[in-house]
């Protein structure tokens, strides 16, 4: 799968307004994956993952932090959920953005994971999956 069709599939899934936003979301999810994927495994994906995206996976560490959990993973992706700063109209109460941002981040993970899975063979996909933190692993499985 080439880069363009990878992005096109993600954009369609997430209904993103622009290719730029799609590229940003994709890059961020893969950067988060790189936080948990040991460096030694990265090159095994080179054959199936577009080289434009391999750049992000190559940010992986020799020994990933074993305590990197689902919340941290989501934290990376949440940064892609765009908000324009506005004055506080909720008087400090329930913030709708906060309430829905995690769902949105999960949806974004799903879109990128779904396209990624379709590009990988089963063994490669399993290799990604086992390194993901538990809740993210579940999302990956459902993607």
């Amino acid at each position: 799968m080439d880069y363009d069709s990878f992005l096109a599939d993600v954009q369609q899934c997430g209904r993103f307004g622009s290719r730029e936003e799609t590229a940003f979301v994709t890059a961020t999810v893969l950067r988060a994956v790189a936080e948990v994927l040991p460096m030694a495994h990265v090159e095994s994906f080179a054959a199936n993952v577009p080289h434009e995206l391999m750049v992000y996976l190559r940010g992986a560490h020799q020994k990933p932090d074993p305590y990197f959990d689902s919340n941290l993973f989501l934290g990376w992706v949440l940064a892609t959920v765009d908000v324009t700063g506005g004055r506080d109209k909720t008087e400090g109460g329930l913030d709708l953005f906060v309430a829905y941002s995690a769902d949105e981040a999960i949806d974004r993970c799903r879109c990128v994971f779904g396209v990624l899975k379709s590009a990988l063979d089963d063994d490669q996909s399993e290799l990604i999956s086992i390194h993901l933190p538990d809740t993210i692993q579940q999302i990956y499985a459902e993607s």
Partner: peptide, 9 residues
């Protein structure tokens, strides 16, 4: 805390 917040870590 917001999901994904660094405070969890």
């Amino acid at each position: 805390w917001c999901p994904g917040c660094g405070d969890f870590a």
